[in-house]
Amino acid sequence: MLQEIIFYGRGGQGSVTAANLLASAALKSGNRGVQAFPFFGAERRGAPVKAFARISDEEIFVRSQITEPDVVVVLDTGVMDAIDVTQGLKEDGVILLNTNQQADDFSFTQKIATVDATSIALKNNILVGGIPVVNTPMTGALVRIIKGVEIEALKEAMRERFGKQAESNARAAEEAYREVKL
């Protein structure tokens, strides 16, 4: 089964890293097809950015961008003022939002999942330049929503990538995994 995911965020929030971590975790969880790639525009800190991930139990050959995702992950709901994040989202797809609000506060036709990744990041003291790092908790919440990726595999991928910062990120991912409201 092929699952396609789009991450929306702002430059500097780590949308690309989130997609890459998911890819590593997906491979560790036994998926044969794993692919993650950024959409590169005139990228700069604060500007809306997009990253893509494909996961499948079979090998993946297709190379085009994702136009009909199964899940969209929104790291910063502020980008929704400028971008329609549900564009192309499948009818039975899921929108995962980083928010302290409830699902009822949003009006989308697709299913909404919420997690307060910003608070989780602050609580675990994962900050870059004073700004909470939300990509790792959001990826934790995501593996709860999609199929075939283990939270332990995600934490392992973080340990390989982050060195000293790994444990706090892994903890934040685990918390978001538990706390995400579906």
Binding site: Q35, F37, I60
Partner: peptide, 9 residues
């Protein structure tokens, strides 16, 4: 980008 910046196994 399609390969240069795409991660895969």
């Amino acid at each position: 980008f399609i390969l240069s910046h795409t991660v895969e196994p």
